[in-house]
Amino acid sequence: MGEEMTEATGGIDFEDEDASGVIKKFMFVNRKAPYGTIYALEALEVVLISAAFDQDVSLAFLDDGVYQLVKGQHTKAIDVKNFSPTYRALEGYDIEKLYVEKESLEQRGLTEADLLVDVEVMSSADIAKMMAEQDVVISF
């Protein structure tokens, strides 16, 4: 942190807070399809900002949230920004825990191969376990 973070945090020095060394587990739960509502994009922006705070961040994709990660999104004709490439940037932000619920994929006729990022596909039960382990769960 230190000098590098100063700009990303708008000049505020978070070093003191960091010295306490408390890293919490944050899970962002994504359950909405992109474009129909603003939830998916808002979640993604919050996730990117959360990366500045060096916390243990994970993302879970359930229900229509799995549609956020589908390959081949082309939004030009609806005149909305295609933010799906940004999920591939998460790795560079050290956000590498992306969990996708198997049942949600199957219900929609999707498989891991249809997704544009590497994810961990897991059962509902394992998602529930992961969720229960978090310090903070943020729902979208």
Binding site: R31, K32, M131, A132, Q134, D135, V136, V137, S139
Partner: peptide, 8 residues
């Protein structure tokens, strides 16, 4: 409860 999920 330790944490909470709102199923929006």
């Amino acid at each position: 409860h330790s944490n909470c999920q709102s199923w929006l």
